[in-house]
Design a protein around this nucleic acid. Structure first.
Length: 484
RNA sequence: GGCCCCGUCGUCUAGUGGCCUAGGACUCUGGCUUCUCAAGCCAGCUACGAGGGUUCGAAUCCCUUCGGGGCUGCCA
């Protein structure tokens, strides 16, 4: 009987979820779904100074937006709750006390200043800095003396001599000699737990089978394993560890605010599709093994496995994300595209959202679908449909001043005004006849001025389709406006 | 400094001893197409960090070295 896989995503939301968080969440999610297991969403908010309810809510929203659903956690609860560490403080206290009673941990009365001074000395002597074990075996007298001095003790875990050996699913066997794993603090004097205690206790209590997390936590793994041992967990019941490689910024350092955009909220505002973000992030450190790159969430679920995750860090490449996003946009149905584009148009105040506006947008979307890479671009692309008069952009003004441009515009007017049929085929043949056949112009020189007059820019969606959608009256008015 | 992790085109990657004169994707360059811009199509540039082994044969195995990163907290 194989145990059901239980992975967890356990961020400490001290800000908006960022790219690195989400890559981890995505892998946790994909692995749980791939194996038919469960994803547990836990909030590590033991540091309530930095983690706020607002950030927690935003994290929950971001996960939902991305489509990374969880089986236990905020909003839905579950049998191993609560899923906010700030609501589990009694649990951590219980275990810390038990470790004390069982002799795995001890009270440490050293002050921060004393520790710092001794660490400094260790560094000078070129020794490995770390707790020196001073309070390991305090006599009752010594302890009474410290208490009398008003010192409040932290609870510190004792690392026995020896080594910790475990198999990382991505990196293979890893060994840490305890010489380099000093005794560590489990609980502050005020009774608040530290990460190392809380994370290990919760992973055990929540029956986590697979811990997928960033490689920065690799060297803290021996400490967690020590907590499992103290809790009496059998080695075969330890969770499996898989330390994911970092996502790096442009400067070869871990991606951060300084070297790239990190906040997922920013990507959403720019008009990246959640499935594009997930698709791209999945490719950062993982590959399906063949040449496939454009994959759906369903394919990700069926193909994902931890063994295929790379061990080396990957640099975040905005250009590639954009390329994937463009592919995903082009693959959207018009109704889906419309649903996703509308919020950008309304929040940019291009439209207010009337039925007529939406109907026009819907008709215009097909001609811009393959021209945009981010949803946000619908704003500049469609703007000209929704203004009374276009303002000719700076760089196009000079072109329109040329004499030939004026000839083109008046010839266009004469050709267009008599049209009884106003569709792009009629518009195109009328203009071709007048400008190209009669005047002998090259297409780009012929249609350029008309494009600028109608859309305000020398770059626009296809001209004839645009004019059709704009309507005869408004198209002609715009050309006239520039002829005078 | 110590410990740990990592090292294939500019970037993400495929590659687990012969199928590799190293494949794909993004980027970039050139071309085709073309009403602009895109999209699409074609072509091109560019990589096994270095040095030693092992082997008939190494990107793949071993050693050394160099480089990058993480940790070394009463942060997570």
């Amino acid at each position: 009987m194989v145990k059901e896989v239980r992975t967890r995503f356990a961020p400490s939301p001290t800000g908006d979820l960022h790219v690195g968080n989400i890559r981890t969440a995505l892998f946790d999610w994909a692995y749980a779904r791939h194996t038919g297991g469960k994803l547990i969403f836990r909030i590590e908010d033991t540091d309530r100074e930095r983690v706020t309810d607002e950030y927690i809510n935003r994290a929950v929203e971001t996960m939902k937006w991305l489509g990374l659903n969880w089986d236990e956690g905020p909003e839905i609860g579950g049998p191993c709750g609560p899923y906010l560490q700030s609501q589990r403080l009694d649990i951590y206290k219980h275990w810390a006390q038990k470790f004390l009673d069982d002799g795995f941990a001890y009270k440490c009365y050293c002050s921060t200043e004393e520790l710092e001074a001794r660490r400094e000395k260790q560094r000078e002597l070129n020794q490995a800095p770390g707790y020196d074990g001073k309070c390991r075996n305090l006599s009752a007298d010594e302890e009474a003396k410290y208490v009398a001095e008003g010192r409040a003790p932290v609870i510190r875990m004792q690392m026995p001599a020896g080594e910790t050996r475990f198999t990382d699913l991505i990196r293979g066997e890893v060994v840490f000699d305890h010489t380099f794993v000093p005794d560590f603090v489990l609980m502050r004097a005020d009774g608040s737990p530290l990460y190392t205690l809380a994370v290990a206790v919760d992973d055990v209590l929540m029956k986590i089978t697979h811990v997928l997390r960033g490689e920065d936590l690799l060297s803290s793994t021996p400490r967690q394993i020590r907590v499992y041992q103290a809790m009496g967990v059998a080695p075969e019941d330890y969770p499996h560890f898989a330390h994911l490689p970092f996502v790096m910024g442009q400067d070869n350092a871990k991606l951060s605010k300084r070297n790239g955009e990190v906040s997922i909220a920013w990507y959403r505002e720019e008009g990246f599709l959640p499935e594009a973000i997930c698709n791209y992030l999945a490719l950062l450190g993982w590959s399906p093994g063949d040449d496939r790159e454009n994959i759906t969430m369903e394919e990700l679920v069926s193909l994902f496995n931890v063994e295929r995750v790379n061990s080396s860090p990957a640099r975040f490449d905005m250009k590639k994300l954009e390329a994937i996003n463009g592919d995903k946009i082009r693959a959207l149905t018009i109704d889906d595209f419309l649903k996703r584009a509308l919020p950008f148009l309304t929040s940019a105040k291009i439209i207010t959202g009337t039925d007529e506006e939406i109907a026009l947008v819907r008709k215009a979307l097909p001609i811009i679908q393959e021209r945009i890479v981010k949803l946000k671009e619908v704003v500049p692309m469609l703007g000209f449909f929704f203004v009374e008069t276009v303002k000719v952009e700076e760089e196009s003004v000079a072109k329109m001043a040329e004499e030939q441009a004026l000839h083109v515009l008046s010839a266009s007017l004469s050709a267009l005004e008599p049209l009884s049929q106003w569709d792009h085929e009629s518009i195109e043949s009328a203009l071709r006849a007048a400008l190209i056949e009669k005047m002998g112009l090259k297409p780009r020189n012929a249609f350029g001025p008309v494009r600028i007059a109608v859309t305000g820019s020398h770059i626009s969606p296809p001209l004839f389709e645009s004019m059709e959608l704009l309507g005869k009256e408004r198209s002609i008015a715009r050309i006239k406006a520039l002829v005078r």
